[in-house]
Design a protein around this nucleic acid. Structure first.
Length: 333
DNA sequence: AAAGATTCCAACCGCAGGCCG
DNA sequence: GCGGCCTGCGGTTGGAATCTT
């Protein structure tokens, strides 16, 4: 894997682009497309390396770039996605107990800024990265949230700064929404790679609350349904549509025992005792059905639980060996 | 008005991984 | 399998613009 020598050539111009250079690059690409970036500068009459031309095009000259202030929606998207993609890349590990792994074959391995950029049309990864570093990171810090972990900052005495409720809620929202978005993106990509007869999982099926198009990968419904079950724990206050969904059903099929008994019991107890949801979750064996139902009359109680999001986080999602880690193969937040 | 501090962002750098001969 | 080429990524930098004193 040798490195490209194109930027090391002596005599090539660096630094800010002039309008004349922009015009040359634009005119060339409009007429011929960029083709090989390495060969482009010579053909376009530019004293630049191909890498520089590519960057200039992607981050500035491309016609489909939206410039200017980020909207509130865009900011929220960046924060939410960054919460999960905080490290260089997000990787759900191989875990034979992972619903994601077994049933969706989701191996999420996407670069952070580009992954975020895919959810912000017309914004470049570089622009998003800059905006994060210059605005959002500082704002979260001011709110008492660690911009790296997205958790409330804790001082030596264990107390938190900022509003822990907001922070925990934000973190949970970020995790689940990000997981959903990334998994969907991944699955859509994978479905394009397998044009016909995609393998149907013989492990797991799901019945989502609402009908979905026939062409939609079934595994997406699993994810949606699973989100309806688990994500509802954390984000029911944010998505009124979720509140309207009366039922999410996941069916465990033959030859799988994805949840150890202790994990199932944990889930069961949490839904029933802590949230008042009507649920029937038994140790998952072949043919078991995981069913969670909740109705609109329970909404106020669910909302009330938002007063204690940190308890939920500390208790059920973060420590090693919990049902959360066993299910998803990584350690919560 | 001027100097210094801070903010912002385009551009650069080095690295990693896919592709191909 | 190896190595060079190419692309794309995240982290960082440098200087212009703006703000503060």
């Amino acid at each position: 894997m040798g490195r490209s020598p194109c930027c090391e050539k002596v005599g090539l111009k660096k630094g800010p682009w002039t309008p004349e250079e922009d015009q040359k690059l634009l005119a060339y690409i409009e007429q011929h497309g960029h083709g090989s970036w390495r060969a482009l500068p010579l053909k376009a009459g530019l004293q630049r390396c191909g890498k520089s031309c590519r960057l200039r095009w992607i981050n500035y000259l491309r016609p489909d770039i939206k410039r200017g202030k980020f909207s509130l929606q865009e900011e929220q998207t960046i924060i939410q996605l960054h919460a999960l993609l905080g490290n260089r890349y997000f990787n759900i590990k191989h875990n034979p107990n992972s619903i994601f792994y077994i049933n969706l074959c989701v191996y999420i391995y996407m670069y952070r800024w580009s992954a975020i950029a895919t959810h912000l049309p017309k914004r470049t990864d570089n622009e998003i990265k800059n905006y994060w570093n210059t605005h959002l990171k500082k704002r979260l810090t001011k709110m008492g949230i660690d911009p790296v972990t997205h958790k409330p900052k804790t001082d030596a005495l264990g107390s938190t700064t900022g509003n822990p409720k907001d922070a925990a809620n934000l973190s949970h929202m970020a995790q689940w929404e990000s997981a959903r978005l990334e998994a969907e993106a991944r699955l859509v990509r994978e479905s394009k790679l397998v044009p016909s007869n995609p393998p149907q999982s013989n492990h797991f099926t799901a019945v989502a609350p609402s009908p979905t198009p026939a062409t939609r990968p079934q595994c997406l419904d699993v994810l949606k349904a699973w989100q309806g079950v688990v994500c509802g724990l954390f984000t029911f206050n944010m998505d009124n549509n979720n509140l309207q969904s009366p039922t999410s059903t996941l069916t465990f099929m033959e030859n799988t025992t994805t949840l150890p008994m202790s994990s199932s019991a944990s889930v069961n107890g949490m839904f029933n005792e802590n949230f008042g949801w009507s649920s029937s979750i038994n140790p998952c064996e072949s043919g078991d059905i995981l069913k969670v139902e909740y109705g609109s009359d329970q909404i106020p109680e669910l909302k009330e639980r938002l007063d204690h999001p940190m308890e939920l986080h500390e208790m059920d999602c973060s420590s090693e060996g919990t049902w959360f880690q066993e299910l998803f193969g990584f350690n919560g937040l």
